[in-house]
Design a protein around this nucleic acid. Structure first.
Lengths: 240, 240
DNA sequence: TGTATATTCATTGTCGACAATTGATGTTGC
DNA sequence: GCAACATCAATTGTCGACAATGAATATACA
């Protein structure tokens, strides 16, 4: 399965300003990890990255420490650094936390949203609709993530927004992994659920927002679990 | 108010192994920040830290990036790094998240605890009792934190444990700030609530665990808010 | 031939030095 | 006396090089 466009070729001669090196490496690596352009578990070579971005190893290492802090890479001391593997055995933990954050952030959004929040959320929902119509899976995944993060921001709790963003990012890798094979089918449901969610937030109906968020989370969790089960079955067939 | 023993004097000659430098700086800084040995908002000097630990600036910077990732320091690009200020205006966000995590982790602990978990939790509760009897405020704060983290671990959800730990750490600074002035009075209540919490977790009574955790959280939140209000009143008197 | 030990090699962690940036200081002109 | 501008000093961000580490390979020995 072809996962994505090849990484952007850096121009090593373009003089970068002082803090730009680390930021560029960090952002690029981050995207490549979340897009599965970099395979989970694959090694990350400091030297090659330094060459690729035309900088020395020091800022590259700094970016790696940041990525490690967010759990996107894992550093084996004195050995090497790998792209964080997907933790399949503990996926239930992930689903539990994801569901709770769906609920809490949507509740708070219903309580605290401003008109600006609503507009921004609706704009993202329009983008999601377009991505669905265009059957652009990567765009759908990305916009969907931004949609829910924006709702969380409307709830105005930094702690929830941070954790939720990280969970949604982790979810991005899972969706990437299973979405492309089962190409369509589900997005319609999500679209309607999103609309209901927006409506509940609009009329500040906290309990409704909670219910819809919970249902939405369950939907997504079940979807991914189905994918994984099918995946397992496939592997089981081979090993028999 | 004398906040703590002076920072441990490092021996610059003792040959450290390869990864020990960053770890030492990170751990030491972390403790000094959480103990309020380093004042929130005060600058953190890379060079002085390097001299203090007898290492170069590179590993010191690496530790700073890690601390910044956890929000314990704030880096002003091209300027300097400061100990993260306490975010008083957004304390309600903090209290909200803290309360939710108290509830969720205690619920999960009641659901999944093993005998080993229970023993470890009881052991920490014994330590807390001793600290209360000895009126050792710093120990109380630290053991209390570990007590709740251990309960969270019994719940076996990495995402909750991580967030909760960070929230409790942030709370440590708040408690340090206000506890030492109002020296006793409250710990008795907490002690009994802890006992009730353990009992609920022991008999796997999820709803009871939830209720007690919620009450416990409310207790603590109200306590801190009272401190802050008194603090404000004090300042208001001065400015009149 | 198989196992234990020494050597090589690639890669990381650390260092000291340099350059860019920014606030502070000093200077000039009005 | 004050504002605009230039210079200075302090500190950061980056670099290239070196040393420590562990894995892979080679060697010695039974």
């Amino acid at each position: 399965m072809s996962l994505d466009e090849p990484g952007p070729v850096q121009l090593p001669d373009a003089k970068r300003k002082r803090g730009q090196g680390v930021g560029a490496v960090y952002e690029t690596l981050r995207h490549e990890i979340l897009n599965l352009t970099l395979e989970p578990g694959s090694p990350v070579d400091e030297v090659k990255l330094a060459e690729r971005f035309g900088i020395s190893r020091t800022p590259v290492r700094e970016a790696m420490v940041k990525l490690a802090g967010e759990g996107l890479v894992v550093t084996l001391p004195n050995r090497f650094t790998i792209v964080a593997p997907i933790d399949f055995p503990n996926l239930s933990q992930f689903f539990d936390a994801l569901s709770l954050m769906y609920r809490v952030t949507t509740r708070l959004a219903a309580a605290s949203r401003t008109q600006d929040d609503l507009e921004a959320i609706r704009e993202l929902q329009r983008g999601y609709t377009l991505a669905v119509e265009a059957r652009d899976v990567p765009a759908m995944i990305e916009v969907n993530r931004n949609f829910h993060v924006r709702i969380a921001q409307a709830g105005r709790n930094r702690y929830y927004t941070d954790l939720f963003s990280r969970l949604l990012d982790e979810g991005r890798r899972l969706l990437r992994l299973y979405y492309s094979s089962h190409n369509d089918a589900l997005p319609r449901v999500y679209l309607q659920e999103h609309e209901d969610m927006i409506a509940a937030i609009d009329r500040q109906d906290i309990e409704a927002a909670d219910r819809i968020a919970q249902a939405h989370a369950q939907q997504i969790v079940r979807q991914i679990q189905t994918y994984i089960t099918e995946d397992r079955r496939l592997n089981a067939d081979i090993s028999l």
